[in-house]
């Protein structure tokens, strides 16, 4: 296949970027999207040009390192998949493909498609845990947890922290990420003692980091490679309201 790739090139954070066109011949439909970029990069190295910087590690959709916007959609058009799981057979010969970094003030571009997502780490640091020191745990079966609750917590816990939700949100809100993390713990009995504090602290950190507010567009849910549901945002709202009454904001 022949692919016309329009790639965002930006040498560093301060520089002004631009879209650069690369035409790739002999793209195999069996390639993953990132392997196609690998091929482009090998060609650029041969030509002595700086290859396109992008992040990716596990290449099986679980580590959350990759993330770029393909034709306006974070992780591309295949739903429930990361960009490393997107294959070229989903495109047609002669397609024009636009590849851009996440565009978000909280995720500044470091280089090309490479962005800084450390704000997500700081949100977790604000309360995305159960404060249980090693050694203090009772037997794992001491507290049975209804299967439905455990499964729902697992649905939320699947978040890979890739940043697609905030990148997809027209408001640049990270509510789906925060909601997934808060819900995972707040659903489980182990998370109850810190339930209110967690909801309040993590939302507060999200605000302090500069993310936008949620307008219930649900674009985050559509972009999420792990199909995390916006119902967790409703749960976060509930927990936050509870926290606001209990502890103030």
């Amino acid at each position: 296949m022949r692919i016309n790739l329009h790639v965002w090139r930006q040498p560093n954070t301060e520089a002004k970027g631009h879209i650069q066109l690369y035409t790739l011949d002999d793209v195999s439909p069996d390639m993953s999207f990132l392997e196609m970029l690998d091929v482009l990069n090998e060609q650029l190295i041969q030509k002595g040009d700086d290859p396109v910087a992008f992040e990716s590690d596990c290449r099986e959709g679980i580590c959350g390192t990759c993330g770029m916007v393909i034709d306006g959609i974070p992780h591309g058009k295949q739903s429930g998949a990361t960009v490393c799981q997107l294959h070229m057979r989903k495109f047609k010969d002669g397609d024009d493909i636009y590849v851009e970094p996440y565009r978000h003030t909280v995720f500044p571009v470091i280089k090309d498609l490479f962005v800084d997502r450390s704000a997500y780490d700081r949100i977790i640091q604000a309360g995305g845990y159960v404060s249980a020191n090693v050694g203090s745990a009772p037997d794992a079966n001491a507290n049975p947890i209804p299967k439905g609750i455990a499964d729902l917590a697992m649905d939320a816990a699947q978040c890979i922290g890739c940043g697609a939700c905030a990148a997809a949100c027209p408001n640049g809100s990270a509510m789906l990420f925060v909601a997934a993390k808060v819900s995972h713990f707040n659903l489980l009995p182990q998370g109850q003692p810190e339930k209110a504090t967690r909801a309040r602290a993590m939302v507060k950190r999200m605000e302090d980091e500069g993310f936008g507010g949620c307008s219930n567009y649900y674009e985050c849910e559509a972009a999420c490679p792990k199909n995390i549901s916006v119902r967790f945002i409703a749960k976060l709202n509930r927990d936050y309201l509870y926290a606001a009454f209990k502890e103030g904001v």
Partner: peptide
């Protein structure tokens, strides 16, 4: 207030704009 605030968070638009779930009414 929220609209102005949110617009500041994402000042740069994507080269291609596409919405999957965000309905026209919501946007």
């Amino acid at each position: 207030y929220l609209k102005l605030y949110n617009n500041k968070v994402r000042p740069t638009k994507y080269a291609v704009t596409k919405y999957i779930k965000a309905r026209f009414s919501s946007r």
